[in-house]
Design a protein around this nucleic acid. Structure first.
Length: 267
DNA sequence: AATGGGACCTGCGCGC
DNA sequence: TGCGCGCAGGTCCCAT
């Protein structure tokens, strides 16, 4: 699933490859991924525009275009971006570049979305989004939890609480910090939250360094796999031995989401 | 106000 | 072999 490290990897690679290039064509293969505007309008506006930047906020990819337009791309569960000359499997939209390559929005489950806006401030999802975990002090991180009572794992995955975490990295961070995913946050000490903060940042940094986690459809824009999958401790490891204590990793539903953890190391 | 569940989707793996 | 079912997950939306 594309979460912060995967989206960061995509943005870094794309930014390097396509910044300053012109979009010469937009080919929409599946209009379901285009939200809020018509395909015609998207094509009319985007054709001829130069890509000024490729950045992200949380899991949202923000592609700045000339003429003060922003292309917003959310990959949701099964989306990925490929930069290539030949059309890829599951491609839904292609943005053609002058050199023959296209930025290809691929998505097997068609839950991802592309939007075009003039002002980022008008996008509710971006406006309400919580802080970036990698540019947040420990003090501010701990302060986020004040007055909260929810279970820790659903809270970490709440984009309005903190940005960029999904089911993989929330689980991995909790394992690292030795915290049970169902603990209610008011029962977690400040020391434990400090530990969680350090675990979270360590894992996100390492995952970015390894160019993300390829478990399902995600690949980097150049087609390479994300290598963090080798370092997963709990995600999709139910039934396998805990890397720390050798007891069996279990899986249960927490806040409606599949959640793996070590019942011995995490409490 | 916070939480839970369904809808959106498709591909895959399972049981029969 | 083949069919149908359930599950996977991020976000939105509605109900409680």
């Amino acid at each position: 699933m594309p979460e912060l490290p995967e989206v960061e990897t995509i943005c870094r690679q794309l930014s390097q490859e396509v910044t300053g290039r012109r979009i010469v064509g937009v080919d929409v293969k599946d209009k379901r991924v285009i939200k809020e505007i018509t395909v015609k309008k998207l094509r009319t506006v985007v054709c001829g525009k130069t890509i000024r930047s490729v950045t992200r906020r949380g899991k949202m990819i923000i592609c700045g275009l000339s003429g003060e337009y922003y292309l917003l791309i959310h990959l949701r569960i099964s989306g990925w971006l490929i930069l290539d000359e030949s059309p890829q499997p599951c491609v839904r939209v292609l943005f053609r570049l002058p050199d023959g390559r296209s930025i290809q929005f691929c998505d097997s489950r068609v839950l991802g979305e592309i939007r075009l806006v003039r002002q980022l401030g008008t996008v509710r999802f971006l406006e309400r989004m919580g802080p970036e975990p990698l540019t947040l002090s420990e003090k501010k991180f701990i302060r986020l939890f004040e007055g909260k009572t929810a279970k820790i794992k659903p809270l970490l995955m709440d984009q309005f609480f903190i940005a960029g975490l999904g089911n993989i990295y929330a689980q991995e961070a909790l394992f690292c910090a030795g915290i049970h995913p169902e603990r209610h946050v008011h029962m977690i000490t400040k020391e434990e939250l400090g530990n969680l903060y350090r675990c979270l940042r360590k894992i996100l940094r390492k995952a970015i360094k390894k160019c993300g986690t390829s478990t399902d459809t995600y690949t980097q824009p150049d087609g390479a796999q994300g290598e963090f999958v080798r370092f997963l401790c709990v995600y999709q490891r139910q039934g396998e031995p805990c890397r720390r204590c050798q007891n069996e990793i279990v899986k249960k539903t927490v806040g409606g989401r599949g959640t793996c953890f070590c019942p011995v190391c995490q409490n």
